[in-house]
């Protein structure tokens, strides 16, 4: 498993170790691949955001780079017509359930969605899929931060931070399909949950769903 190999990503030769996950190899070598749900160190990747597609020579379909181990002589393309189409659709679908209004968002200019839009020249607007605009309630019960589900992209970064880093276990995914949300046990407020307000989940959030309250 620890054999040194050479792979090619977008014509760039990269020396790495066999069995590593392609997404992290690419990112470590300054090749940007959009991603939201991937977590380095997690055994089974979620592969749910569908943004990290790449094409590999010899495979007839694009693959998610967060699930793909590298092998010797691998030739990867991060930008092809097929990849761009998949990523564009996935991004538009994510936006269809994401409240925009970046100007009033606490993560403005520090948002992963904005970064992806910029890198891939995608529009931060509701275009093909109209905005669902579901009614959600903001939970601002904690003293130091608040949670706005309407800006959540369901990447699971906060849940990983809560379970594996903070070892608290206050939040998790509830329900499924369009009803899927990040929730506490029995949908109680964060204040009533085991949450310790360590803030690790807020730091992990790539978008404006979890944000620290401004000291006033």
């Amino acid at each position: 498993m620890s054999r040194e190999i050479t792979i090619t990503i977008d014509d760039k030769k990269i020396r790495t170790v066999e069995g590593k996950i392609l997404l992290w190899v690419a990112l470590a070598n300054d090749i940007y691949i959009p991603h939201l749900c991937a977590i380095e160190g997690k055994d089974l990747p979620e592969a749910s955001c569908r943004l990290c597609f790449v094409e590999i020579e010899g495979k007839n379909k694009p693959v998610t780079s967060c699930t793909q181990p590298v092998y010797d002589g691998m030739v990867v393309r991060t930008r092809t017509a097929k990849v761009d189409r998949l990523v564009k659709t996935a991004f538009e679908l994510l936006l269809s359930d994401h409240r925009l209004g970046c100007a009033s968002c606490p993560k403005n200019r520090n948002c992963e969605l904005q970064r992806i839009a910029k890198e891939r020249k995608l529009k931060l607007r509701h275009t093909r899929f109209k905005y669902l605009g579901r009614e959600t309630a903001v939970d601002d019960s904690p003293d130091s931060f608040s949670f706005d589900p309407s800006r959540c992209v369901l990447c699971g970064q906060c849940i990983w931070a809560d379970h594996e880093k903070a070892k608290v276990g206050a939040i998790g995914f509830a329900r499924r399909g369009l009803g899927r949300t990040v929730a506490t046990f029995n949908y109680e407020s964060l204040k009533d949950s085991p949450c310790t307000e360590c803030g690790l989940c807020v730091e992990a959030c790539p978008v404006g769903a979890l944000s620290f309250k401004k000291n006033t």
Binding site: H163, V168, G169, A170, I171, G172, F173, A174, R175, R176, A183, T184, F185, N186, S193, P194
Partner: peptide, 25 residues
Amino acid sequence: PRLAMQKIAEFLGIPPVDVFALATF
């Protein structure tokens, strides 16, 4: 019942929210 889910979480040594996540899925 909520109480049963809490007891199950205790028994398995996992956070109650993980039981809730599965039960709502």
